[in-house]
């Protein structure tokens, strides 16, 4: 479904990604793990079109999207729940969710079914639907960020550090929902520093170090890989 071929992204003189090749097949949950500063967010931004690609190609459903603006990529089916959640603080929960339907919604088309689906996954959002984004707790904001991305009716869901800044129990709760979403057949690419959580939901995983993919394979295999255990699992 998504393939990045030899992707190079530079911020000024600093090369953040130096030739990343990565594949995500339809229906898979793929984890991209790596330390802070390895280039994980840069890669997601490149896929969403927030970063310009210096060389290499990004293909989505066999079409090259490297030159497309972000809104065209969202319309094509790539939605992202960004790092730090980035909820619109002055918009209500419902406005945050409704806003994300602009990519597909036609004039006066109902979004009730989509709202119900998100409220079904995250019942707490329904209780808070009239509250402004800033008044939510960190966990609720993360749920809203994921729910908001789902409102775009994506084919590929990009999650950037969904566990960031959450208490361990909350992070597990969020990942439980990510697993549920994956089980509905949605393709997910999740970027994460918390290797244990990411590998627990993923089918396959890539390890990114200083802008290069250094390891890839099925999640179960990587869990037992000596290098991953030492560098990321602390054992």
């Amino acid at each position: 479904m998504l393939s990045c071929n030899d992707l190079v992204v530079a911020h000024g003189d600093i090369v953040a990604l130096q030739g990343v090749t990565l594949q995500v097949e339809a229906g898979e949950t793929v984890a991209l793990i790596g330390a802070n500063g390895a280039g994980k967010t840069t890669l997601l931004h490149a896929i969403s079109g927030l970063n310009r690609v210096s060389s290499g190609d990004i293909r989505f459903e066999r079409r090259s999207i490297a030159g497309w603006p972000t809104d065209a990529r969202v319309s094509a089916g790539i939605a992202q729940a960004p790092e730090g959640r980035r909820i619109f603080p002055g918009l209500s929960v419902e406005e945050n969710l409704t806003l994300a339907t602009v990519s597909w919604r036609r004039w006066r088309q109902s979004i009730a079914a989509d709202l119900d689906r998100v409220f079904g996954l995250f019942p707490r959002l329904k209780e808070r639907r009239r509250q402004l984004g800033w008044s939510l707790s960190g966990g609720e904001q993360q749920m809203l960020a994921i729910g908001r991305a789902l409102m775009a009716r994506p084919k590929l869901l990009l999650l950037d550090e969904p566990s960031l800044g959450l208490a361990p129990r909350l992070a597990e709760e969020v990942y439980e929902q990510v697993r549920c979403i994956g089980e509905t057949g949605l393709t997910i690419l999740v970027v994460e520093q918390n290797t244990v959580l990411a590998l627990s939901v993923a089918d396959r995983a890539y390890v990114l170090e200083t802008g290069r993919i250094v390891l890839e394979g099925p999640a179960d295999e990587l869990k037992h890989n000596a290098r991953v255990r030492e560098a990321y699992l602390g054992r």
């Binding site: 927030l50 969202v74 960004p82 980035r86 909820i87 806003l99 994300a100 908001r148």
Partner: peptide, 10 residues
């Protein structure tokens, strides 16, 4: 409120 997030929403 947040231009980048707005872009990500399409």
């Amino acid at each position: 409120q947040d231009v980048q997030a707005a872009r990500l929403m399409g």
